[in-house]
């Protein structure tokens, strides 16, 4: 009986072909534990991503009927300011007069707006440099050297099509996804 036990141990622990049974058990156990630990990390990390109630707040309706040419309103989209501005004839002409190829972020006014609503400039009120709110949407605020928006934090100047013209900001003000649900209502997001 005792001999049989010893034989079993020899087979169990034996190193046929240089690989011991124990090596396999070790690798299998550590791999299994490692995969489990990594799988556990996923919920621990993703819990910090926006929760369902935050994502549910992701669209805003804006009534644009009362906005006069030259006037802008600030709405809120995803807890951030949204600039809705009706351009004057002069501002549209100024925007279209620019050589698009010379711009840092080349876009035409038509590309910044929707067809049939070229006078409605809808952008995020968030400077693309470091996220301050540019001036120019409120009554009497500085509009910068190009008559659009001016960010007071680090001096970025945007033109009347919200394109970056001077200063450190890398891109034009962001145009969020939006659509006209009627002639006077815009649904953003």
């Amino acid at each position: 009986m005792a001999e049989a036990t010893i034989d079993n141990t020899a087979v169990a622990d034996g190193d046929e072909g240089g690989v011991r049974r124990r090596d396999f058990i070790e690798i299998a156990a550590v791999s299994f534990g490692g995969v489990g630990a990594l799988a556990t990390l996923y919920p621990l990390i993703s819990q910090m991503a926006p929760s369902k109630d935050v994502l549910a707040e992701s669209s805003t309706e804006v009534d644009i009927s009362a906005i006069q040419p030259g006037q802008a309103v600030k709405a809120v989209f995803r807890k951030q300011p949204l600039f809705v501005r009706r351009l004057t004839e002069k501002e549209i002409a100024a925007a279209n007069a620019v050589d698009v190829g010379s711009l840092r972020d080349p876009k035409t006014l038509a590309e910044m707006t929707k067809e049939g609503h070229e006078d409605m400039l809808i952008t995020m009120g968030v400077c693309t440099h470091l996220g301050c709110v540019p001036l120019g949407a409120g009554e009497g605020e500085v509009k910068g050297e190009f008559g659009g928006y001016f960010c007071p934090c680090h001096g970025s100047h945007y033109d009347t099509a919200a394109r970056i013209r001077k200063g450190p900001a890398p891109t034009n003000l962001e145009v969020p996804e939006y659509e006209y649900t009627s002639d006077t209502t815009v649904k953003v997001g």
Partner: peptide, 13 residues
Amino acid sequence: EHIMRDVNWGWMM
């Protein structure tokens, strides 16, 4: 309840 319903994996936490 917000943790249970809205937060990603909040119920599990």
